[in-house]
Amino acid sequence: MRLSTVILPIHRWGEGQKIWRRADDLGFHAAYTYDHLSWRSFRDAPWFGAIPTLTAAATATERIRLGTLVTSPNFRHPVTLAKEAVTVDDVSGGRLTIGIGAGGIGFDATALGQEAWTGKERADRFGEFLPLLDKLLRQDATTETGRYYSAVEARNIPGCVQRPRVPFYVAATGSRGLRLAAEYGQGWVTYGDPKGPADVPVEQAPAVIAGQLAKLGEACAAQGRDPRELEKVLLQGSTAERPLASLDAFVDWAGTYQELGITELVVHWPVADSIFENDQAVFERIATEGLAQLGS
């Protein structure tokens, strides 16, 4: 099992670079950031762009993997996202992971002036977005005409450092998204019950993930793919569980999900006066001792 973190893009870089470097020093497998234009309670507070932040983080770190968790079609286009991904992968020396999903109904959904898409529309768009992004990152030149997304002689030279392309971690819980994860993903991401993760009683939260893992296995079987090929990533912070309250709480929580088959846990870097407020000393102890006590 691996342990990673999410660093929200809320810090001016003079301060932000210290956090990314500290994450590198603490030994986290990866450090991700949210790819939103603004987000929930942080909407009227500082919030920077994900791709420039990851590019800067690539120059400030040496070992840690970097990525979005997650980007979506809400305000992205495959052609421009592919170009940016190739760039970050190059700057980082092949340390980029693209966490990607269908998007939601938050501020990003209407920031460009469009009406918020229905769930079906989001799924339809994602079903076209992800295959095109896959092609753009594998080929020097791509031409394709779609209902929602097209590319005309779109160049991506020299391509990704990682071959055949940067890995995709696909966030999905519905049948269509899970099929895409099984077909295109190197990893799969969940944060709990998408209908209301915080409403699920703590003792029932693992059963939700177990059910999702079973459906992922079915989707992989339909694609003729071994589900063991995919990383199974659990993003902490949306459920009623509180694994960052203490080292013991983390070890218990991590052990539960390790038994279910989760291979990577992602915890939020503490943010004071927010839903992600946690004791920094406890957090750093979890980072350095948590998996060792688990026996990983």
Rank of each mutant, 00 (worst) to 15 (best):
M1L: 13
L3R: 04
S4T: 12
T5R: 03
I10N: 11
H11K: 02
R12G: 10
Q17K: 12
I19E: 15
G27H: 10
A30Q: 02
Y32I: 07
D35E: 12
D35I: 04
H36I: 11
S38T: 10
S38P: 00
S38Q: 07
S38W: 10
S38E: 11
W39E: 09
R40F: 15
S41C: 11
F42P: 00
D44F: 12
P46E: 13
W47D: 06
F48H: 12
A50S: 11
A50Y: 06
I51A: 08
L54T: 06
T55G: 13
T55L: 15
A56T: 04
T61W: 01
L69N: 08
S72R: 08
F75I: 13
R76T: 05
V79Y: 05
L81P: 04
K83T: 12
A85W: 06
A85E: 06
A85H: 04
D90P: 06
V91M: 04
G93C: 04
L96R: 01
I98A: 03
G99H: 01
A102P: 01
I105E: 01
E115N: 13
A116D: 00
W117K: 15
T118H: 10
R122N: 06
R122D: 00
R122A: 06
G127V: 07
E128M: 01
F129L: 02
P131E: 07
L132Y: 00
L133W: 01
K135H: 11
L137N: 07
R138Q: 10
T143R: 08
T145M: 14
G159T: 05
C160P: 02
V161N: 07
V161K: 08
P164D: 10
P167E: 06
P167A: 15
Y169R: 15
V170L: 07
A171M: 07
A172E: 09
A172W: 07
R176C: 05
R176S: 04
G177V: 04
A181C: 04
W188A: 01
W188G: 03
V189F: 03
T190A: 14
T190N: 15
D193A: 14
P194M: 08
P194E: 09
K195T: 11
G196A: 14
P197E: 13
D199R: 11
A205M: 14
I209S: 06
I209F: 04
I209Y: 05
G211S: 07
G217W: 02
A221D: 12
G224Q: 14
G224P: 13
R225G: 07
D226C: 09
E229N: 10
L230G: 00
L230K: 00
L230D: 01
L230Y: 00
L230Q: 01
E231C: 07
V233M: 14
L234C: 12
L235S: 13
S238N: 13
R242C: 14
R242A: 15
L244Q: 10
L247Q: 11
D248G: 05
W253K: 00
W253F: 11
G255F: 03
E259P: 00
L260G: 09
L260Q: 09
I262Q: 03
E264P: 10
L265K: 09
V266L: 14
V267S: 08
H268N: 13
W269Q: 08
P270D: 10
P270A: 09
F276V: 08
E277N: 05
R285W: 06
I286P: 08
I286S: 08
A292Q: 15
Q293E: 15
S296Y: 02
